[in-house]
Amino acid sequence: MSVPRRTPTLAQQVWLLLQKDLRVEMRTGEVVATSLLFSAVLVSLFVFAGFSTRKAASEGAPGLLWMASAFVAVLVVTRTFEREREDGAVTALLLIPGASTALFFAKLVYNWLLLTLVQGVLLLLVGGVFSVDWFAHGYAVAVALLLGGFGLCAVGTTLAALLAAMRLREVIVPVVLFPLCVPLLIAGAQASVAAIRGQNSGAWMVTILLFDLLFVGLGQWLFGLALEGAGGGEGDSE
């Protein structure tokens, strides 16, 4: 394969980095397997806690769906830099010019793909257990999950990068991620409720979209700053 002379475009960089992560994941399947198992356990916990027997399950099911999504998102994003940290590859990746933007979008899309996969399974599980037909009124719930998942991953990826060198990272990521995602969870759950009732969920979708735009923008900026800090002063952390 010939080496291209010019620097690859942002899209090419993102694609290359994404391919690398996807290839590793396809070989091991670690994250997908554990996340799927986790979501199955979570849904069964909801059942044992008595949620599925309530009359109001069709109202509660969207909330549980979004809560489960948030939990899975934490599980996925906290592992964003696990492999790179193990062999100190973050610094190497950052030597590529303009890499932090590409790295952010590659990690974001990678996390989003994994989360979407798990969300699909969650949709079936929650729908089955609570007897909710998500698609009786069109695809609004699926669209909300896709958009909302993107927002969750945007915040989550940023936090994963920021907190990569932090002690007690596994606790702090959810503690920060959940409050930040409150508007997303409200909008997502309400959009889903509206969709099930056959109402218009347009305003909630706009809210989700605004959230996505805001946090992709901010995340991209802060991600670069965080990695500069991690690359420059790895020694002074902890």
Partner: peptide
């Protein structure tokens, strides 16, 4: 540490940026 200062600065920015959205929602 320097990294903590940066993390916290980022958290403050993310948090305050979130406030109008939470308010609206």
């Amino acid at each position: 540490t320097e990294i903590t200062r940066r993390i916290c600065a980022a958290l403050a920015i993310l948090g305050v940026a979130d406030i109008p959205l939470v308010h609206f929602a």
